[in-house]
Every structure is written in C-alpha cells, then in structure tokens.
Design a protein around this nucleic acid. Structure first.
Lengths: 117, 117
DNA sequence: TATGATACTTACTTTTAGGAAAGTATAAAG
DNA sequence: CTTTATACTTTCCTAAAAGTAAGTATCATA
C-alpha cells in the first residue's frame, strides 16, 4: 500500500503530501511574495488581496512549522515581525511558477480577461 | 483587482483556477493513470487505492466537464465505459509530474519510507 | 427464479477550509 | 487619558470536500 502517516495525518500519495505543504488558497501567494522580498506582517496583508488576519496568521504559522519560511521578531513597540523564505521554501518556487503558468494558460483558453502578472 | 468570475465561482489568482482543474485528492491520480492508458471505470477503481464510487464518479464527471478527459459508453450489458485523456488533459501532465516529484523530495527530506513509483 | 457483472446514483454524515467580527497587548504621542 | 500603530488571538459560523452505506438497471447465465 503506497500510503503513509506523518504528523498525525494519513497520506495516500506524494501529490497529497506536496499539496499539504503548498496547497490551499493562501500558501502559494504567500511563498511567492516572500521569495521576492522579506516582508513584514502588515506588508504581506496589504499585498495579498482578500486575505484575512486569521488566514494570514494560520498559514504563516503552518509554513514556519514546515520549515518553508522564517519568522523574525523585533523586540519593539509597536511590534515588528519579518517573514522570509528559507532554503527549503525556495525549492517550492519552481513548482509554484509551473502551476501559475498553467493557471494563466487555462485562463486564456477559457477566454477570461485577466491582468498579466 | 486581479480576480475574476468563472462558472459561478470567484477566483483570486491563476493558482486557484489551476487547482480548481487538477486539485483535490483525486483528480491528479486519475489524470495520471489516464495519460498512460485508456481505462474502464472498474480498472480505475482497482488501480486507485481508497477511492470510493462516489468520489470516482464525481471527479470523472468534473474532469469531463472541464474537457480534460473523455467518456465513451458502449451499448452493452453489463455496461462498459472507457475513459481517456484529451489534448487539454495532456497539458496538465507535466504539472502533475512536477508536483509528484516535489512530493517525493519532501517525503525523502522528511525521512519517510515510501515505495518509489 | 436467483446470481453475477458493471457502472453507476442517492441520501446522509463527517471533516476541513475558510471567513467575519471583535478583542488583546504595549508604549509612545497628542 | 485617549488615540495610534502593529501583529496578532479568539469565537462563532458557513460552505465545500470527502466518506459511508445502501440501492438501481440490464441481460445472460446457471
């Protein structure tokens, strides 16, 4: 049986495992931005349309736990926290790019208007 | 605002649109098998561990509606139905391969035992 | 007359992802 | 002594995805 447990979850395929790391609505948009710049919480929030505080925080925590990003807290008031991508996170970037391009292709095929980049 | 409606659904990014086509637990496993062989319903079911009738049917219907696969019914009893991948579906294969490979990498990094291919 | 083979459908329940809205902590500035 | 700035946390709620279990149709064969 090609299946396995990890971190209290059962996976059937490597695909599932991959999507657990970079799937969902928000993880790729976050990683994509962090591979271009180190960003503060508030900057990420402004940059990613529609994301809520809850989603931003939970996804950042999740990505950190998986080792794809790093969180750096400055001991100042008001708080300052910077997020950056890790070596491990960088490995996801080509995959994200591939998926993004495929998405653009599908959008074009479907004849949908969409601002390029 | 880089967002768009399509087929009664709102998408924020091309990534979301792409994952609507090939995302979820079952679509990639199905497409992957069909790019290697034309398969009957029962063959797919045997070949994909854990998939239920409900999931197999709904995903096949969805993939057909999106134009990624084709359904061919033979007028015989008991029923015979063959599924094959389309030109459009073939365009997803390199993306699936990329994600699969990434999944394998993550599995290795995590030190998980997993049968290769 | 019952059984088997195939490809489903239907109804129901559980699980997971995502979203809305409000609240919290700290210290400086007005 | 109230407001501002920042990065959250918490509770509650909805919707979507997935799973369970049983049922259906047709005809040939035993």
């Amino acid at each position: 049986m090609p299946e396995f447990f990890h971190d209290k979850k059962l996976y059937y395929t490597p695909i599932e495992f991959a999507l657990n790391h970079i799937g969902g609505t928000w993880k790729m948009p976050i990683l994509w931005r962090l591979h271009k710049n180190i960003l503060r919480y508030g900057e990420l929030k402004k940059d990613i349309p529609h994301i809520t505080d809850k989603m931003l925080t939970t996804q950042l925590r999740d990505l950190e736990e998986k080792g794809l990003i790093e969180r750096k807290v400055y001991a100042v008031v008001p708080p300052k926290v910077e997020y950056s991508i890790t070596e491990k996170g960088l490995k996801a970037i080509p995959i994200i790019e591939t998926i993004m391009k495929y998405g653009y292709e599908l959008i074009q095929e479907a004849g949908i208007e969409f601002p390029p980049k």
